[in-house]
Design a protein around this nucleic acid. Structure first.
Ligand SMILES: [Mn+2]
Ligand SMILES: [Mn+2]
Ligand SMILES: [Zn+2]
Ligand SMILES: [Zn+2]
Lengths: 157, 157
DNA sequence: AGCAAGTCGAGACCGAGTCTCATTTGCAGG
DNA sequence: CCTGCAAATGAGACTCGGTCTCGACTTGCT
């Protein structure tokens, strides 16, 4: 996957803030630069840690306050795999329709795209009288390496 | 949906306990009778409350210890819709392949079956070198009633 | 009955996420 | 540049689902 255009996303978010009459603070700048300075998936706590390396004054509260803005802007994607924390994907603007599969044993996440899946999800929802807001196929599985190792839980690869 | 055969599920679970050399205690009996005495989806805290109506001595710890046994036995299905609690489905033995769609606004859950979806999920997983353990399509949507009411959050139907 | 292993409840604890409130900061308008 | 004020901030208390510990009590087996 090619390196995403971080600058574009950053500027889009600043514009999003302006539109909503929200202020561009130094903490928000540090957070946004952190988010669009990686293409890894991350948790809120990881983001806090990374952002603090740029600006030690960033607080947990501000990270948790900014994350909903980032997802509302559509530039970051929030995911839930049934763990007790959420996972965020900073590449969403560049790859808006990808899905994820997670290995239950080692937490490895693999991305994939499937138009067939998207179409089927939409079809089912409308048949049931729902209007889709977001959809997420969560497949909990064991990856190949885990199968070889024989179901050992939570080891590194 | 017809009333499920609660007795069968209850006995299957007792057999499951015996197989694993686990004891049949009065608290486990109360919990199991509660679980297979409803066909509603429930949370762990709800189950605690209901089980205590049968046997006031049932503790939170025992409920949380028994739930994994119930899901491991395959008789109860554990689900996560991105809320901060899990939802359990006591009908799983009778309808092993159904999926769920949830209304983000009012938490209403609707069940459906789709062989096409199941097949597609399996195909994708194996293509990626994963062996599926469980799969769950989570569609966060607005139900018809919520659309009419205009996106009002968390109201009763 | 007697024993060992399994199970129990109470309540301490955990960790992600939320809330409060006193203080600081961005920014518009003069 | 200055001033005023709403928006935003950090520290830390708090919430809440869920887990863990540990001493006491059951269960199942002989
Ligand atoms: Mn991704
Ligand atoms: Mn169901
Ligand atoms: Zn793995
Ligand atoms: Zn609804």
């Amino acid at each position: 996957m090619p390196t995403p255009d971080r600058t574009a996303a950053k500027e889009k978010f600043m514009a999003f803030l302006e539109e909503k009459n929200l202020r561009i603070t130094s903490q928000r700048r540090a957070i946004v630069e952190t988010v669009f300075g990686t293409d890894q998936h991350f948790t809120a706590e990881q983001l806090l840690e990374w952002a603090r390396e740029r600006d030690a004054s960033v607080s947990r509260a501000t990270v948790y306050r900014t994350l909903p803005l980032l997802t509302e802007s559509g530039l970051v994607h929030e995911m839930d795999f049934g763990k007790d924390y959420k996972i965020y994907d900073p590449n969403y603007a560049d790859h808006p329709n990808h899905n994820h599969i997670i290995c239950d044993d080692c937490d490895k996440i693999v991305e994939f795209e499937s138009d067939k899946l998207d179409a089927l999800e939409t079809e089912i929802s409308s048949k049931l009288g729902f209007s889709v807001k977001s959809q997420q196929l969560r497949i909990n599985a064991s990856c190949e390496e885990m199968k070889k190792l024989g179901a050992c839980k939570n080891k590194d690869h």
